[in-house]
Design a protein around this nucleic acid. Structure first.
Lengths: 146, 146
DNA sequence: GTGTTTGCAAAGTGTTTGCAATTTA
DNA sequence: TAAATTGCAAACACTTTGCAAACAC
C-alpha cells in the first residue's frame, strides 16, 4: 500500500491511476503535483507558479522536481507546453486542440476552444518536413483609453 | 560628415536615412547592424546569431549593444519580435502582417505571407481588453520515415 | 561642451544537471 | 535490494544593467 493513502481516498486514487496510466511511479511528489494540476479543471502553470502553490499548501516538493515532473508529464501526454513568452515556459492541462489568448501585461493565458477558430489556407510544409502542430496566439492587452 | 562615409556610399546612406527616420542617431554600431539586417531581404535573427555574423566580418560591436539595438529597432518599428521558442528571442525584419513556420529541430523561422493564411472565427477579446495581434506559428519537423 | 551611446563585466532570470541520499516496487 | 526518484547546489543559456569611457551633434 502506497504511503498513508488507501483506496477510499478518491482524489489520490485518481492521481495514482493517472500516473499508472502513463507508466510513471506514483511517488509522493508526483501525486501532489498531479492533484494540484488536475483536480481543478483546466489550468495554465509555470514551474514557478506551481511550486509556489504547493509550498503555500505546505506540500514540500523541490523546484527541480517540479521542473522535471512537468516535463515528464508533457512527454507522457498529460500536459502540453505553450510558448507565448520568451522568458518562461507555460504548461496547459488542457491537451485537446485549442488556442490561446495571452494577456501581455499580466502574463495570463486563456483557452479558446478549438472549434472557435479555423485556420484556412494553411500552406504545406516545406519539402521533407511535416506539420507538427499549429498554434494560434491572440495577444491581448488593456484597451486603449476611450 | 559622419565617419569615413560620404553620400556616395549608398548602403550607408540608406542605413543613415533609415535610422534618421526613426530618430535614432546613426552611430557606427547602429549602422553596421542596420546594414546587416536590412541590406539583404527578409531576415530572422537572434542577438547571438547577428552578433556572430558581425564579428565574423570583423565588424566589432558588443553583444550588449546588439541586444540593446535590436530592442531599440523593435520599439521604433523597424523590427518585429517573434516568440516561438522559450529560450531565445527572434527578431524579424519583415514587419508586414504574416505568419511563420518554425522548424523545431533546427530552430529556423520561415515567413508565410500574410495572404496565405486566414484565421476565421476569432473570438472577441475578454472585457476591457483588445487584440494586439494574432500570431500563427506552424511547427514543423523532419517528416516521419515513409 | 552636453547629452547620447557603447562596452565591459557583473548581475539577473528561468531552467537544467550531477550526484548522494532516499524511496518505490 | 535493485532501480527509480528526489533535492540540493552548482552550472547553464540567454538577457539586462550600472557605469565610466567614447562619441555625435
Amino acid at each position: 500500500m502506497a504511503f498513508q493513502f488507501d483506496s477510499f481516498d478518491r482524489p489520490f486514487a485518481a492521481a495514482i491511476d493517472r500516473l499508472r496510466s502513463v507508466s510513471l511511479r506514483p511517488t509522493r511528489q508526483r501525486l501532489v503535483i498531479c492533484r494540484q494540476l488536475f483536480d481543478a479543471g483546466d489550468r495554465h502553470v509555470t514551474a514557478e507558479t506551481l511550486h509556489a502553490e504547493l509550498v503555500g499548501q505546505r506540500l514540500r516538493v523541490s523546484l527541480a522536481t517540479v521542473y522535471n515532473t512537468l516535463h515528464q508529464f508533457t512527454k507522457a501526454g498529460l500536459l502540453r507546453e505553450v510558448v507565448v513568452d520568451g522568458a518562461k515556459t507555460y504548461f496547459d492541462t488542457n491537451i485537446s486542440a485549442h488556442h490561446h489568448f495571452f494577456d501581455i501585461e499580466r502574463g495570463d493565458l486563456i483557452d479558446i476552444p478549438g472549434e472557435g477558430i479555423a485556420v484556412n489556407g494553411l500552406p504545406t510544409a516545406p519539402d521533407g518536413l511535416e506539420i507538427d502542430r499549429v498554434d494560434v496566439v491572440i495577444r491581448i492587452r488593456r484597451a486603449a483609453r476611450g
